[in-house]
């Protein structure tokens, strides 16, 4: 008898060429994305508080994923404008994990270097660097480093706020570090390897 593995069955069900991108995004998303269930009703685009700044509403992105328009999707600013408020997620009649799909698209855009504006990816990367170094986030270092790079002209305007925060004792100027940084590093290192194999 031939071997019928899960993979072989799935491969047959999804052999439609155009669905491979949809499938890829779905597999890379935390939880079960239900992405293939989208009925294009627009609940997500209607719910989104920042839709006015998006090039495409989430609904359009899902249609584009279905159409296999990889570059167009990854180049869109939509995923970067998402504020993770989850309004779309709880209202979606098809239970698509929209916010998590946005995270997936960010990750894919970064890897493909297809983002138009580096502000958001850099912010995320800076944040991640801090966490990987200290185990904790470090708001002061993060904000100042980030503003320095992306909004230098804003800095004078923001300075009073930053100073206010420091003055009120709300911004530590020294990063905290967790005790077992070695352990965290080992975990993250292994996780990164697993990420590549998945």
């Amino acid at each position: 008898m031939p071997q019928m593995t899960d993979e072989r069955v799935r491969a047959r069900l999804t052999r439609e060429e155009d669905l491979s991108l949809l499938h890829e995004v779905s597999m890379k998303t935390a939880g079960v994305s239900h992405l293939e269930m989208c009925i294009q009703c627009g609940t997500c685009g209607g719910s989104c508080p920042s839709a006015m700044d998006m090039e495409h509403t989430p609904r359009m992105l899902f249609a584009m994923l279905r159409a296999g328009m990889r570059d167009e999707v990854l180049r869109s600013n939509t995923q970067w404008i998402c504020v993770s408020c989850y309004h779309c997620v709880v209202r979606c009649p098809q239970e698509v994990h929209i916010a998590d799909v946005m995270y997936t698209l960010k990750g894919m855009a970064i890897k493909a270097k297809l983002y138009q504006d580096s502000t958001a990816p850099d912010f995320s990367q800076t944040f991640v660097d801090m966490v990987e170094t200290y185990g904790r986030s470090f708001e002061f270092g993060l904000a100042s480093r980030h503003y320095l790079k992306h909004f230098p002209l804003r800095l004078p305007g923001m300075a009073p706020m930053g100073l206010g925060m420091i003055a009120k004792g709300r911004m530590g100027i020294k990063p905290k570090k967790i005790r077992r940084m070695d352990q965290l590093k080992a975990i993250l290192e292994r996780a990164s390897q697993l990420e590549l194999t998945s």
Binding site: K28, T29, A30, Q79, S84, D100, M102, Y103, T104, K106, G107, I110, F123, S124, Q125, F127, V128, V131, G135, R136, S137, I178, L184, I187, L188, R190, A191, S192, L194, E195, S198
Partner: peptide, 20 residues
């Protein structure tokens, strides 16, 4: 305890973010 990664880590790498 360590940082939860806020909304930043999730947009970079899935497995490290959830491991964190």
């Amino acid at each position: 305890w360590n940082c939860c990664g806020a909304t930043e880590y999730l947009g970079i790498n899935l497995i490290p973010a959830y491991s964190l």
